[in-house]
């Protein structure tokens, strides 16, 4: 029970992290490359790694999709057969065992897919780390860094900016696809808003990597527990939570997404400029 609960908790947290959709609001066309200072955060190698991570995520989703559908159907049957609170019934026990088998299958697939996913995420994270360290950590002073950020804001225009570390119910593979599209469409040109995007992706990758590692450990324990439970033919709320968590990774999460309010309208050109202005 405890192990399942932990897997469930971690999966839920992982889901939350994996389903950030903060790239939807970025207007690619609004980003002007001509005035920004030169920073190279996304060379071709990093782009390729992001694309590869998206492909691995897609494969994981495809592999899990069939078993998730089956789990849904079995759970539905269990409910419709009024098995809840009637666990001693032989028919219900049979459905519960089938459900448990599907659950084990799902854990197996996750267990097989996660190492590759982890490797891809770690590789992307490591490459981004090097670029961020060089381009933002060593080349920029704190003052020039904030000028870069302020510059990107004026280039993007009012109200058109990425929602930071938000969630929008997006599939994992779609999210990586958006990362890729966003960065690739800038055409390798100078683009200072990429500083924020790079920071966001990098931090996300760091957390994701850590949670994947922990999830892998917990899946081993959850598998063992479920193998033991098979002899009793019962399903637990925790098992349902894990399935729900994995579904959220596959199909996106429906958490409420609260976008940041756009900046208030105002005549920018009429702003007072003091001789003391920095």
């Amino acid at each position: 029970m405890t192990t399942r609960f932990r897997v469930s908790t971690i999966t839920t947290r992982l889901t939350g992290l994996l389903i950030a959709g903060y790239l939807l609001a970025i207007p690619i066309n609004a980003i002007s490359a001509s005035q920004a200072p030169t920073i190279r955060l996304f060379p071709t190698t990093v782009l390729e790694e992001i694309r590869h991570t998206g492909t691995v995520a897609k494969d994981m989703e495809t592999g899990l999709q069939a078993v998730i559908v089956r789990l849904d159907e079995q759970q539905q049957l269990y409910i419709e057969s009024k098995c809840e609170g009637n666990e001693g019934d032989p028919g219900c026990e049979r459905i519960a065992r089938q459900l448990g088998k599907s659950y084990l299958e799902m854990l197996d697939i996750m267990s097989a897919s996660l190492p590759e996913m982890e490797a891809a995420v770690n590789s992307t994270s490591s490459s981004l780390e090097k670029r961020i360290r060089k381009e933002l950590g060593h080349k920029k002073t704190p003052w020039s860094l904030q000028e870069l950020l302020l510059n990107q804001e004026s280039q993007r225009g009012n109200g058109e900016r990425p929602a930071l570390r938000g969630r929008s119910g997006m599939r994992l593979s779609d999210r990586f696809n958006q990362y890729y599209q966003l960065v690739a469409r800038s055409g390798g040109q100078v683009n200072s808003s990429l500083a924020v995007i790079a920071a966001d992706i990098y931090l996300d990758m760091q957390e994701t990597s850590s949670l994947i590692a922990r999830t892998r450990e917990e899946i081993g324990r959850a598998t063992l527990m479920e193998q033991l439970n098979q002899s009793f033919g019962t399903i637990t709320p925790e098992m349902q939570e894990v399935v729900a968590g994995v579904k959220a990774i596959l199909f996106g999460e429906s958490e409420e997404f609260i976008p940041m309010a756009p900046p208030p309208a105002g005549p920018a050109s009429l702003e007072y400029e003091s001789p003391l202005q920095l």
């Binding site: 360290r133 933002l136 950020l149 930071l164 920071a199 760091q206 900046p263 105002g266």
Partner: peptide, 28 residues
Amino acid sequence: ADRRSYHRASRLYQEAELVLEATCEACG
């Protein structure tokens, strides 16, 4: 009563916080 500038300052704070967090993590 300059809401627009305050909004920009507030946004800059958030972005600086995020970028500094990532950069300092990357710096080691």
